[in-house]
């Protein structure tokens, strides 16, 4: 509300007071309700991050960059980036490639709830339990190897734990449901009439996917990829328990953890965490930037 029309000279006396002017900009008592959460987030998220960033430039010894110099000079450290990517990228891509056709199928199901509830299981159980379970299940005496041997597919147990494949399997089992459920929500968001329209216009199943679904889903797939990738990239408990934490599955989280809790070098640990964040961010930004190439907007044919 602005001042009402009046002929008296003391117009300003009728003008909005400070409280009303602030309210007009959206600042009133209700807005203040956001303050506690914002303060909390500043104290426990922004401040530690900033603190860690600064700390990473204040190494125990050497110049301000020496943590980073040490990281990129020591193969035991810098190779963790490659090892982590070598795990997380293939797993994320595989998860996405598996999730898409399955999401297209499951969309047709009347009762999706049971399947989605089953798939939510490994996510809620968490990485530690999955690692513990797989340790037995995929072990040389586990049911998995036994079954393969019973069917005569292999003559001696495959080595599936304490190496790359153990971690790979655990990332698949916790990552696939996550990727799948995200993909499903994007796929079901697309108006089925679009596909029907394409079919009446002569597009076969592959053309419908290629020219209608794919362009509409690309932005969603990009986001799914990023979220799944970020999870896989920060793999920690399963890399320790199921992998070879001194060898091929010495991922970057392990390096950060060891710096902090074995060497008690918080400055170095912060530097590793920052490097980890930057690598993730670089990949996420690259993928999301490519999203700009695609149509982004409501995925239904009609207005409103």
């Amino acid at each position: 509300m602005t001042a009402s029309v009046t002929t008296t000279p003391a117009r300003d006396a009728y003008g909005p007071n400070l409280r009303q002017r602030l309210a007009a900009r959206g600042l009133d008592a209700v807005t203040l309700l956001a303050v506690p959460a914002a303060l909390f987030s500043l104290a426990l998220f922004v401040y530690p991050f900033a603190f860690g960033l600064v700390l990473s430039f204040e190494p125990k010894a050497g110049g301000w960059l020496s943590n980073y110099q040490r990281f990129f000079a020591d193969p035991f450290l810098y190779e963790t980036i490659g090892k982590t990517l070598w795990l997380s990228l293939p797993v994320t891509l595989l998860n996405l490639f598996l999730a898409v056709p399955i999401a297209f199928r499951v969309r047709l199901m009347r009762n999706q709830r049971l399947l989605t509830a089953i798939l939510v299981l490994p996510i809620t159980l968490g990485t530690v339990l999955v690692a513990e379970g797989l340790l037995n299940y995929l072990g040389p005496q586990g049911w998995f190897n036994r079954t393969l041997m019973t069917f005569g597919l292999i003559s001696q147990p495959l080595k599936l734990v304490h190496n790359y494949w153990g971690v790979f399997a655990s990332l698949l089992i916790t990552g696939f449901p996550f990727t799948f459920l995200l993909t499903l929500s994007y796929v079901t968001g697309i108006d089925p009439a679009l596909e029907q329209a394409a079919a009446t216009l002569g597009a076969n199943a592959w053309q419908r996917f290629r020219h209608v679904y794919l362009p509409l889903l690309m932005p969603g797939f990009a986001i799914t990829f990023c979220l799944s990738f970020v999870q896989a990239f920060s793999v920690f408990p399963s890399a320790v328990l199921l992998g070879a934490p001194a060898g091929p599955t010495r991922v970057i989280s392990i390096a950060a953890y060891q710096a902090a809790f074995e060497e008690y070098d918080y400055s170095m640990a912060s530097a590793v965490a920052m490097i980890m964040g930057v690598v993730q961010l670089a990949i996420v930004v690259a993928v999301l930037a490519s999203r700009g190439l695609f149509y982004r907007g409501p995925a239904s044919g009609a207005k409103g």
Binding site: A38, P48, V230, S234, S270
Partner: peptide, 25 residues
């Protein structure tokens, strides 16, 4: 503010957990 609230969900816990643990220690 929305971005501030979105970030902790997008960044995996191990990444912000290390600096956070440092501060808490």
């Amino acid at each position: 503010l929305m971005l501030l609230f979105l970030l902790p969900l997008l960044i995996p816990p191990i990444t912000f957990g290390i600096p956070l643990a440092t501060v808490l220690y």
